[in-house]
Design a protein around this nucleic acid. Structure first.
Length: 138
DNA sequence: GCCAACGTTGGC
DNA sequence: GCCAACGTTGGC
């Protein structure tokens, strides 16, 4: 059973274009227990929305989990881990934070309620709805 | 173990 | 650029 997620990245640091160019990458740098626990819960083949935070504030594409949680070598304390993700497809139309905030079926998401969380689960209904808004098939 | 101080994220 | 939210750190 595929689970669905959302991961955030500031495009100035790491953008969807960077992700597409490099294909498969290490989702390193998470330094928050809740986000890290979400990474830990990801399974191979799970899908995640790729969200541009700060600049853009919109979901721009879909990535797939291709390697399970393992230690993040960039964490000097060796506490946090990461997964590997691969670009799957871009949204035909990016779905903005503004849209999600004003959508009765979507404004329950942690993206709105917990704005600082950088890795979060997305329920199936919300996944389907956002895919529809983005002009892609779920 | 509490809590004040501090640092970071991310929307506005 | 500001600041609210909130997680982390460290003194006690």
């Amino acid at each position: 059973m595929t689970a669905y997620w959302l991961v955030k990245s500031e495009p100035a640091a790491w953008s969807w274009d960077d992700q597409v160019r490099d294909g498969t990458t290490h989702w390193h740098g998470v330094r928050n227990y809740q986000a890290s626990n979400n990474l830990k819960a990801m399974k191979l083949g799970d899908l995640a929305f790729f969200y541009h935070s700060v600049t853009g504030k919109e979901i721009v594409g879909v990535v797939e989990v291709v390697k399970l949680y393992y230690p993040d070598p960039s964490d000097p304390k060796g506490i946090f881990g990461m997964v590997d993700v691969k670009a799957v497809k871009p949204f035909a139309t990016p779905v903005t934070l503004e849209q999600i905030k004003h959508d009765d079926q979507l404004n329950h998401l942690a993206l709105i309620r917990q704005s600082r969380l950088s890795v979060m689960p997305i329920d199936v209904e919300a996944w389907k709805r956002i895919c529809a808004l983005g002009g892609i098939t779920a």
